[in-house]
């Protein structure tokens, strides 16, 4: 197995990075270059990621190995600039690694790698993989008797086309995984669209579904804090033309 964090030199020492504010994200995003291809994917998630890391997830650079931490599974790994900016703002990575984004020896690529970046739970890129892994994490935590941690998985509306998601979302229902929250960022990137709504497959499988404005941080926080006792829940974060 590859040793985790070959780039450990770039991991800031605890307390070495001053936690940044939401207003600092633009400056951190400016440090990342060469993300043109994925820029809309990235900006569609910046508010959501900030809310997750600032208000919702119980995960800090100091508790990365805590088995009771919350798990954030970024399935839609493309357009990771906002993710990297938020990780830097929260002290998981040093802002000094942002400018070398996607260089050969950079820990930061156009799809995140869990073996290179502290706090990144899964390596992604190929679409439709994160939800089943998140289901497995939730099942595993239940086996271990850990009731505290929640598992939050972020998908895109285009990614939802992958059939593997539909296996996994039903499985989450059948295994009664109330620790699992899925967020679908709906920025209308599905070529063929979802005529009955991106939430329809989840609602049909008995998930609790709520749709909110993906740039309204207050609404996002409220929706992400709302949970069901018995079923997994879906938060649709609508952005761009999907609003």
């Amino acid at each position: 197995m590859t040793s985790k964090f070959d780039h450990a030199a770039q991991v800031p020492a605890p307390g070495a990075v001053r936690p940044a504010a939401y207003e600092d994200l633009d400056g951190l995003l400016d440090l990342l270059s060469g993300d043109e291809k994925h820029s809309s994917a990235s900006t569609s998630t910046v508010d959501l990621l900030w809310v997750l890391y600032d208000r919702v997830l119980r995960v800090r650079p100091e508790n990365l190995d805590d088995p009771d931490r919350d798990r954030f599974v970024l399935s839609k790994g493309h357009g990771p600039a906002a993710y990297y900016a938020v990780l830097a703002a929260k002290g998981f990575i040093s802002p000094s690694v942002l400018p070398e984004f996607s260089a050969f020896a950079s820990p930061l690529g156009h799809h995140p790698d869990r073996l290179l970046i502290p706090g990144v739970e899964i390596s992604s890129g190929s679409l439709g993989h994160g939800l089943a892994i998140a289901v497995g994490i939730a099942v595993g935590l239940r086996i271990q008797g850990r009731r505290e941690p929640r598992v939050v998985c972020l998908l895109g509306d285009g990614e939802l086309e992958e059939g593997s998601n539909h296996e996994a979302l039903w499985l989450a229902t059948l295994l009664e995984l109330s620790a699992l929250t899925v967020i679908v960022v709906d920025n209308r990137s599905s070529d063929l669209g979802w005529p009955t709504g991106v939430g329809a497959p989840f609602a049909a499988a008995g998930w609790m579904v709520e749709r909110v404005d993906g740039h309204n941080r207050g609404e996002l926080e409220r929706a992400l804090r709302r949970r069901s006792e018995t079923t997994p829940n879906l938060v649709i974060a609508a952005t761009g033309t999907a609003l």
């Binding site: 439709g128 089943a132 497995g136 994490i137 099942v139 086996i143 296996e167 499985l171 059948l174």
Partner: peptide, 20 residues
Amino acid sequence: VGIREQSLIGVAAGLAHVGL
């Protein structure tokens, strides 16, 4: 997991992720 072989491997990865 039923007849869901993509999930079969994905879920296994999640179990390994928490140390099982």
